[in-house]
């Protein structure tokens, strides 16, 4: 029969056993288990910490790059807009200039044409005036053939012509 006191029995043999075996156990595990395991854990933690640092640095770098890219793009866009505006203005100016020149040419041509028309009209009028005189003379000759001799005839014509030249533009009043 065991007593409650037996739970507190001192057993020097057991103490020796446990002390020796546990010492060996600690040393064994320290060399072959805890060493490799803890160093592996530390290595992994270091790797993870480094990776995070690198990732953060890369992120910052990419943000910086993006920022500079955006700026460059904005600048390029502004430049392009400026160029387009300039080109458009130049084109506009060129067109206006062209229109002006065309208009001037047309005007010149028109003036020339008008001048020619006027000249032709003058010469036609001159011709017509000659024809009309001849026709008048012919008609008058026919009417006056018998009653007038050549001498009287000429006097009449001359007087008529003088009259014509003195009152040019009016319808010649026939007084004879």
């Amino acid at each position: 029969m065991y007593l409650a006191a037996d739970l507190l029995n001192a057993n020097p043999g057991l103490i020796v056993w446990i002390a020796v075996v546990f010492t060996g156990f600690v040393l064994l595990l320290r060399k072959f288990a805890w060493g490799p395991i803890v160093s592996a854990l530390e290595e992994r933690e270091q790797t993870i910490a480094n990776s995070i640092n690198r990732a953060e640095a890369a992120l910052a770098e990419s943000k910086r790059l993006q920022e500079s890219n955006t700026q460059a793009r904005r600048k390029a866009e502004q430049e392009a807009q400026r160029l387009v505006r300039k080109a458009r203005e130049e084109a506009e100016a060129l067109r206006a200039q062209e229109v002006q020149r065309t208009r001037e040419e047309i005007n010149a041509l028109r003036a020339q044409a008008r001048e020619e028309i006027a000249r032709d009209k003058d010469s036609a009028l001159q011709q017509l005036r000659g024809e009309v005189a001849d026709l008048a003379i012919l008609a008058a000759e026919r009417i006056l053939m018998e009653s007038l001799n050549a001498k009287r005839h000429h006097t009449l014509v001359d007087r008529f012509i003088d009259d014509l030249s003195s009152r040019k533009g009016d319808a010649p009043p026939y007084e004879a």
Partner: peptide
């Protein structure tokens, strides 16, 4: 000195053997 094996020693050794096997494998 009575170095006789006792039940508690056996289970302590068992625990050590088990832990050695497990952690060596893990290492």
């Amino acid at each position: 000195l009575d170095l006789s094996m006792t039940r508690h020693l056996v289970f302590a050794l068992l625990a050590m053997a088990f832990l050695t096997a497990v952690f060596m494998q893990l290492a």
